[in-house]
Amino acid sequence: MAVERKSVSFTFWLILLAIALLSVLPFLWIILGSLKPHLEIQRGQLWPWQSYTAQKPAGPGQPPREVSQHVTADNYRRIFQKLSGLPTYYFNTFYLSAAGTFLALFVGTLAAYGFAQFKFAGSRLLFMLLLLTIMIPGEVTLIGRYELMFQLRLYDKIVGLLISYVAGSLLLVIFIMRNVFASISQDITDAAMLDGASSWKIFWEVMVPMGGNGLAACGILTFLNIWNEFLFALTFTSMDKVRTLPVGIFMLKGQFGLFNSGVLFATVLLSFLPIVLVFILLQKYFVRGLSMGALKG
């Protein structure tokens, strides 16, 4: 029995490993491809042991000599020589994600506290109204927001995108944090109230510290969503200096993609490396937040 169970779980383990490979392989290709020149990528020769002949300059006046090479760093060199916009895209995306997450967490947590802790006229109605926004397709708000951006002179401004992202992220935060706050024992808040604590003090010194895991999960999700957002960033900006990474990379595809996939691969790798690292560092909180049942309901 025990032996059989062990072999069964080993089979499971192999299946899991195979599926894991399926989700990682494309990334592996990107890494390998970013180290190869365009022609090799076109031929599908990505492995580092597949060598190729490269033309290297051999001093003034001499014909270039031919060298057998396995990998190259040329793609990365070309990014830094030619794509002057990349640091700007990085900065914009990081700024939007960080500031957007902070604002959404702050404003959303306040509202979640309001809904979880107080009884007031219209609370159900207002909450339903907020919930309804999740059903509104992005297409409907897209055109309206575009006009709104123009009216408020926020088109082509980072602030415009920022407010738009905060509005888009609030619901998730309110929804999760309301559940988290509702699960905190009423006794604790009652005790604090008897001590004469104001509602703000209870919020800031009791609820927020106790909702730490939920906040972390919300924060990571919001950060990821903003970092990856494409449609609004594409629609609400036209100038290079307000462009985000996803839009910037998409534009690069038009510029470079057709004749140099190596540079494209290298750029793509650089664009998501930071977020992968951040996620791996923080995933403990994220998984804990999820398994806490924060997304239940």
Binding site: G114, L126, T141, G144
Partner: peptide, 19 residues
């Protein structure tokens, strides 16, 4: 309570319902 929910409500109303 209205003070707590007002900022969120304002942003959502403007960017979801007004748009």
């Amino acid at each position: 309570a209205y003070l707590y929910i007002a900022p969120a409500l304002a942003v959502v109303l403007l960017f979801s319902f007004v748009s």
